[in-house]
Amino acid sequence: MNRFFRKFRLVSIDVFIYHMVKHNEFQLPKFKYTIQRENIHNKTRFFIKDLNTLVHESYVFKKVFLLKSIHKNGPVIGDCFTNKKYRGQSIYPYVINSVAKWLLESTCNEVFVVVNKTNESSIKGIEKAGFVKLASIKAKRWLWFYSKREINYFNRK
C-alpha cells in the first residue's frame, strides 16, 4: 500500500533535455552485441543480452508530459541501465544512438533524452551518442502536473 501512496507525493525535478533531429553516426569497432526490441504497452524496450545476462536496456516512451513545458512533443529515450560488468565499453551511447536512428528513420523528426543534472556518466554518454543539450528544467511535479517551472534553453536559434 505504501508504494501506491508514493505515486501521489510531490517530486522535485531538475533535468536536462537533450535532442537529436538529424542522425549522427556512432561507430564502435567490432561491436559484438545485437540490440533486441520488444513492445510493452505504451513504451518500447531495447536491450542487449550476453548469454542470460542483461547487458543493457533502454526504453522509448511515446509521450512524456515534461516536454510540453518546452512546447515539444516526441519520443523520449529513458530508464537506461547498463550492467556494471559491461560499463566503459560505450554500449550506452551506441544503443541510444541506434535507437535514435531507428526512430528518426521510421516514426518521427526529433528524439529526446531526459536526464537528471547530477547523472554525469549518463550525460557523457548522451553527448557521446550525438545528442545536443536543448534545455534545462527545474520544477515540482505532482502526478503529471508541473509547477514552479524554471526553464533555460541552450543554443536556441
Rank of each mutant, 00 (worst) to 15 (best):
D50H: 11
E25K: 07
M20D: 14
N24C: 07
K22T: 14
T34F: 09
Q27S: 12
F61R: 07
Y59R: 11
F26M: 02
F46K: 06
F46H: 10
K62W: 12
E25P: 09
V60C: 04
H41Y: 12
F46W: 09
N42K: 09
N39G: 08
K49A: 01
I35S: 03
F46V: 06
H23S: 10
H56Y: 01
Y18C: 04
N42R: 08
H41D: 15
N52T: 11
T44Q: 08
V15Y: 08
P29W: 01
Q27P: 04
F47E: 06
F61W: 06
D50Q: 07
V21I: 14
I40R: 13
T34R: 12
Q27G: 05
F61N: 06
E38L: 14
L54S: 08
K62S: 15
Y59G: 08
H23V: 13
N42C: 06
F16Q: 11
F26S: 01
V60R: 03
D50R: 12
F61M: 05
L51Y: 15
Y59P: 09
M20E: 14
F16Y: 15
Y59T: 09
H23I: 15
V21R: 15
N42Q: 08
F31Q: 00
I17N: 00
T53C: 03
E57R: 07
D50P: 06
T34K: 13
K30V: 00
F16L: 14
F26Y: 08
S58K: 00
N52R: 14
K62L: 13
I48C: 01
V60M: 05
T53K: 09
K32G: 08
Y18K: 03
H56A: 01
Q27C: 05
H41V: 11
N39I: 10
Q36I: 00
P29H: 04
E25C: 07
Y33C: 04
H19A: 10
P29Y: 02
R37S: 11
E38R: 15
V21W: 13
F46Y: 13
F61D: 05
L54W: 08
K22E: 15
V60T: 10
K49E: 06
E38N: 15
F16W: 13
R45I: 12
H23M: 09
L28R: 03
R45E: 14
T53M: 03
N39C: 09
Y59L: 12
L54D: 05
L28E: 03
